[in-house]
Design a binder for these strands. Structure first.
Lengths: 364, 364
DNA sequence: TTGAAAGCGCTAACAT
DNA sequence: ATGTTAGCGCTTTCAA
C-alpha cells in the first residue's frame, strides 16, 4: 500500500505537479498485474469476480482514469470522436457576429451522448472548398486518429470527404445527408414530407394561391423542400403557377426580395411558404413595408424553427427539425459501429419533425 | 526510398488499412535520425539548413503528420485544449430545443484560433452543481491531459474549478470572468461601463424616468449591469427611484412581468432598460399587450445583441458583446502561456463592446 | 484465469 | 550539429 505515484518537478514553469495515477498504481494497490487491471477496465471475459472486485476498489480509491493518449496510441480504437464542421460556414458566422443555432444544437446532442458513453468530442474545421481537401483531411486523421467521425452539413454530402474516410477505414455518421445514403450511418429528416405537410396545412386553411421562396438551387435541401411543396399542390388538385415560385438563398434579404416579387407577380396571393425561417422573417418585413399585415392579409410560414421564429411579431408557423436528437442518434449509431461485434444498420435513420403552429398562418 | 509503412490487416472488422506514416518513415526517407526529424518539426535550434530542407521535403512528400496521442504521451505538453461548458446549461438548452448563441460564438472564435496555431479543441461538459465536481474534474484532466483549459461562463467564476486547475498545474483562460481576476488568463468585457453608456444614451435622448429590469441577483453580471445603470443616473443628476427597478431572471417571461410591473408603478415612464435581450423581447410583448407601441410611446433597450434582436419589430437597440473575439483572444493568451518561455500578462484583458442603435429607442 | 513482455509514435535526456 | 536510448501509459500478443 505504498504511495501513489511520486512527485515530479516540472522545472519548465516552476510548478510542482503530482504524478498522475497510472495503471501500475492500480495494479500495485490491488496486488495484480496491469493486464488484469486492463481486463477489468475493458470488461473482458475470464476475470474472476474477486479480482474484478479488488481492482474496482483500487480504481475507485485512487480516482484512476485511463489516459486517452496512451489508449489510442497502444490500441486499435480510440474513444475520440471528431466532429467535422465546415470552415467557410464558420468564418461566415464569425464575420456576421452570429452563432450557428443548427450546429450548436447538433453539438449539444452529440455531447450529451458522448458523456453517457465516455467518449470525447473534438471539433474540427474542414475547408470544404480547398483543392487539397483530401490531403488536409488525411493529415487531420493521421494527427488525431479518431475512433469515429461525425459529419455535419454540408460535409455530410461531400463526396471527397466520404471517399477519404472510406479509404482510411474510419467509421462515420452523417447528419442531414441527402445523397448516397448507403454510405456511413445516416440520420436525417424527411424534408420533402415536411414541406408537403406544411403546404397541405396552408391548403387546409383555405389557401389556394400559395407562393414559395426557394433556397439556393445547389443545396439538396432546397430541392427537397420545393418538391414537397409541388407534390402537395398536385395532390390537392391545385395547378402549379411558375410565377408563384421565386428563388432565394436562405438569407433574410433574399426573403425580402422574394416576398416583394411574389406580391407583384401573383394576383390573389394569400399564403407564402418561405423555405427557411430567415427568409420568412425577411418576407415578413417586406410584407409590412408593403402595408400588409400577417396573418390578417397574408399567411406566412417558414422552415427550421430558428429561435427568432418565436420572438417575431407575429410568431412564425414553421417546421421544427430535431437537430439535437439527430446528433444524439448519430452518436449512438457511431459508437455502436465502433464496438467489435457491431452490425451496420442497413438503411438511413429518419427522425420525426414537427409542424409548429403559431400566429403567422390562419384560415381564410 | 523504400515503401512507406507496411500493410496492416485489421482483423477486428475485416478491413484493410494502410499503416500510418511515422517519424521513422520520414527519418528513413531523408536519411537522418528520428531526433533530427523531431528537431525540425519542433523548430528547435542547431539544425543545419540542409538537414531542415531534406526533412521538410520528406514530410511534404509523405504527407506526414505527428500523432497527437504519441506527442502528448511522450512530452510534457499537449496541443489539445479542453473547453469546459456547463452541463446544466447544456441540458436546459437541449430541453428547450434551442442552441446556445453565446457558446456557439465562443466556440467559433476558439476554433478559428486553434486552427491557426495547430491546436485542437475538445469540448467537455462539467456538472457545475455536483458535489463531486472536484473529483470529476480531476478524472477528466487525468483522462485527456489537455495542454490548456478554456473556461466558459459560468465555469469561469467557479471557485472549485479554478482550485482544481491550479492544483493540477493546468494553464487556463477564463472568458467573461468577474471575480478573482488575478487567477488564470481572463478576457472579458466591461459590463458596468456598457450599462452606464446605454443608460446615458437613453438620457441623451431626453428620457428622465427610466425603468430597469435586473437579472438574477446571484449573477455578478446582473449586479454590474445594475450598477452601471445607477451610476449613469447619478452622473446625470437623476434621482434613483426604487420603484423603477424590478427584478427579472434573464428570461422572456420575466421581461413581460417586469414591463407590466413598471407600467403600473412608475408614472411618466418613457424608457425601459432590460438588462438582457430576452427580457427586452418579453417587455416588448407586454408593452404591446398594454396598448403601447415602441418606440412611439416608450423607448426600450436590451443587452447582449442576440440574433432575435435584429428580427423583432421594432429592431432592438442593445449592447453587442464580441464573444468570438473574446474567445480568440483567450485562446491566443492560453497558447502563449503554453510556450516554455511564456510570461503571464499581469492584468485581465478587456475587449471593447458596441452600443448598437436600432429602432426601439428614440428621442422624446 | 492470470501474467510477462513487446510495442504504439513520439519527446527528452544524454551522448557524440 | 546530429544520433542513441529510454521511457510516456496503455493494449496486445503470447505464455503459463
Amino acid at each position: 500500500m505504498g504511495p501513489v505515484g511520486g512527485a515530479k518537478f516540472d522545472v519548465a514553469w516552476r510548478r510542482i505537479t503530482l504524478a498522475a495515477v497510472t495503471i501500475y498504481d492500480v495494479a500495485a494497490r490491488s496486488g495484480v498485474s496491469i493486464k488484469s487491471v486492463s481486463r477489468v477496465l475493458n470488461g473482458e471475459p475470464n476475470v474472476s469476480p474477486a479480482l474484478r472486485e479488488k481492482v474496482s476498489r483500487a480504481v475507485e480509491a485512487l480516482g484512476y482514469r485511463r489516459s486517452l493518449s496512451a489508449r489510442s496510441l497502444a490500441g486499435a480504437t480510440s474513444s475520440l470522436i471528431a466532429a467535422l464542421a465546415d470552415a467557410a460556414l464558420t468564418i461566415e458566422h464569425w464575420r456576421s457576429g452570429r452563432g450557428n443555432d443548427y450546429l450548436s444544437r447538433l453539438e449539444l446532442g452529440a455531447l450529451m451522448e458522448c458523456r453517457k458513453a465516455d467518449y470525447h468530442l473534438m471539433v474540427e474545421l474542414v475547408d470544404h472548398g480547398a483543392e487539397t481537401l483530401d490531403r488536409e483531411l488525411m493529415a487531420l486523421l493521421a494527427a488525431i486518429r479518431p475512433g469515429g467521425v461525425l459529419l455535419t452539413p454540408p460535409n455530410s454530402d461531400h463526396g471527397t470527404v466520404l471517399d477519404v474516410l472510406d479509404q482510411e477505414g474510419v467509421n462515420y455518421a452523417r447528419i442531414g445527408a441527402r445523397t448516397q445514403l448507403d454510405r456511413g450511418f445516416c440520420v436525417s429528416m424527411d424534408e420533402r414530407q415536411a414541406s408537403f405537410d406544411m403546404t397541405a396545412y396552408l391548403i387546409s386553411l383555405g389557401h389556394r394561391r400559395i407562393g414559395f421562396i426557394t433556397g439556393p438551387p445547389a443545396y439538396p435541401a432546397s430541392q427537397l423542400r420545393q418538391a414537397g411543396y409541388q407534390d402537395a399542390l398536385a395532390a390537392h388538385g391545385l395547378a402549379l403557377d411558375e410565377a408563384a415560385i421565386v428563388e432565394g438563398d436562405f438569407t433574410f434579404p433574399s426573403g425580402m426580395r422574394g416576398m416583394t416579387a411574389l406580391l407583384n407577380s401573383v394576383p390573389g396571393l394569400t399564403g407564402v411558404f418561405a423555405s427557411n425561417d430567415d427568409m420568412a422573417l425577411g418576407a415578413l418585413q417586406a410584407a409590412a413595408a408593403a402595408g400588409l399585415s400577417v396573418p390578417q392579409d397574408l399567411s406566412l410560414v417558414g422552415f427550421d424553427d430558428t429561435p427568432s421564429a418565436l420572438f417575431s411579431t407575429p410568431t412564425l408557423t414553421t417546421i421544427r427539425q430535431p437537430v439535437a436528437e439527430m446528433a444524439a442518434e448519430a452518436m449512438r449509431g457511431l459508437i455502436g459501429l465502433l464496438k467489435p461485434d457491431s452490425v451496420r444498420p442497413d438503411g438511413p435513420m429518419t427522425v420525426p419533425y414537427e409542424l409548429i403552429r403559431r400566429q403567422s398562418a390562419r384560415a381564410i
